[in-house]
Each structure stands twice: as structure tokens, then as C-alpha cells.
Amino acid sequence: MRSLFHSRSPFKPSPFAALVSYLLLGFWALLILFPLYWLITTSFKLPADVNNGPFYIPFVDFQPSLHAWRYILEEVGNDTRRNFLNTVVVALSSSVLALMLGSSAAYALTRFQFRPKLGTVGVFLACVLVTIALFLVVGLPLGASVAVGAGLFVISLLTISKRFKRLLSNSDIAFWLISQRIMPPVAVVLPLYVVYQQLGLLDTWAALIITYVAVNLPIVVWLMRDYFSTIPIEIEESAQIDGASRFRIFFTIVLPLALPGLVATFLFVLVFAWNEYLISVFLTNARAQTMPSMVVAQNATRGPQWWYLSVLVTIMIAPVLGLAILLERYIARGLLVGAVKG
């Protein structure tokens, strides 16, 4: 397997092309690294060094100070550690879950045909509407509203929905999934708050994890659908002939083949959950608060505390960067080729 990671001639540029490539890559790297350099040096500056700036080089321009690091790691260290732990747990578990559920769904959507009936879907939506109206407007308890809604659904499923036979397809399901991301967070925060309050899940990891899984699933499904569809179906067919089950094929053949895509998608959803602010700040108070809240909190009545902000952002990047370094190698060529050729 190892040798397959090495690629062949089409990707080996000529010396001149290599030089140009390095120049371009270097230029972009500079554009990315300079702001980060500024961020890190700012974390070692005193307020006066920032306000009287710009100062560029530590020890030459200004005397670096650990005051901001001390404040974040010692003075409010308990908060920092708690929020950091929360962020790690919530981001990792939600993105792993989203990746598992999402890639399964994506696989199902690329390889099987689903024909849900429009009537059923419509009836279902109507019943949800009734449930929520009962709960919010009439003021029935949540349990009772859900029961009424469910009852209505069963009844109408047996009667009305049979009349509307138009079928939906996989692409409709996929589009429905992605359309769930259109709503801006502002519009969903208050309803979510009410839902979790009813479930008694406010200020817990569970609330954040469930939400982030749901928010990230559509992206996983869409990206993974594309990666799966590039995998030649012959491999799966031959495995099927050999008697492998669908799940076995999915877990032992398809997923490994889609590893580059999985890793890229994982990094993206992880970063999203890692950095999400608005939902997190509303669903948590203290116990489950995450890091982005702390970053935003540095801009209070006295204006942005650049030095603390910089420390926090630096702390937040470090673990994700480490993970990216670890995982980067899997976004590599050759796996697919290897599998096809056995």
C-alpha cells in the first residue's frame, strides 16, 4: 500500500515551472503568515505597545511581555481550561458523528434510489406545523402537542396521503438537506433555545453536539456524495459477487477509497464546530461554554482587548493546526489507483 502514495510523472513539474510555483506558493504563504505573525506578536504586547504602534519585531521594537498569556492561562485559567475542554469535546464528537452519519447517507444517496411520496412528506410537514402551533399558540405541553401531531400524522397517512402519488427523488432529498443551511443562525437560535429548554438540555454538551451534527450533516452529505460518485462501481460489484454485505462493502471498501475526501470534509466540519459562536453562546451558560464566547467577550465596555484576543485565537488555532498536520498526509493521491489495480 505504501508505494501507492507515490505518484507518477504527470505531477512532476519542470525546473522552471517548479520555480514559478514556489514563487506563487511563497507569495500566498506570506499573505497568510503575516497576519498570523501579527497576531502572535500582539499576544506578547502591552496595551501601550499596541496603542503606540506599529511595532514589528520583539526585543528590537518592543519588549515582549507575558501579561496577556498570564491573564488568560492563570488569572482566568479555570474558565479557559473549561471552555477549551468543552470546545474539544463538542467539536470532535460532533464532527465525527456528522462524518459517520453524513457519509452513510451520502453513500445511500449515490448508490440507491429513494422514492419518498410527496403526499407523505406534505402531510408530515402539516402535522409538524400543527404540533408546534399547539405548543406555542394554544399552550399545550410539549408532550401532548407531539402526541396530537403524531396521531394526526398516522390518521392522515392512512387516508389523505394516498391521493398524492407524485414521487420525490434522491436529488430532492439532497437538496432538502442542503437547504437546511440557508436559514441564518439568528433565525434559529430562539426556537432552538426553546426546544432544548423543554428537553432540559440547556448548558450541556449534548445540546451543542446534536445541533452541530445537524448543521454539519448537509455539508458532509454533499461533499461525500461527490467523492463517492467518483469511485468506480465495478469494485463494489465484484465485492458483492464475492458475497460481501452492503455494510461490509461500505466500511471496508468505499470509505477507505474516499479517504482524501473524508479527511478534507472532516477538517471542514471540525473547524466549523470548533469556531461556531452564536448558537453556542445561546445554548450555554457556564458549564458548557466554548472558546469563541471567550474571544468575543474580550470586546466589552473598554473596547477590544487585542492582547487577550490574540492569545485566545492563538490557543484556538494550535490544536486544529496540529490535527491538520497529522491528517494532511491522507489527502494524498494513489489510494484509488491502488484499489482498482488490486
Binding site: 464528537s93 458523528l97 450541556t204 449534548a206 470509505l255 477507505p256 458549564r287
Partner: peptide, 22 residues
Amino acid sequence: KWIAFAALGALTLSACATPPQP
């Protein structure tokens, strides 16, 4: 690797429990 993957998933599921008290 995929067993590990699944195990990690199970782990995260169990992590959905409440966070530790401050």
C-alpha cells in the same frame, strides 16, 4: 482503522453526557 473509527464514534456518543461540574 475502521474499527477504531467506529470506536471513536461510540466514544463520542457517550461523551454526549453532561459535562463535568465546574
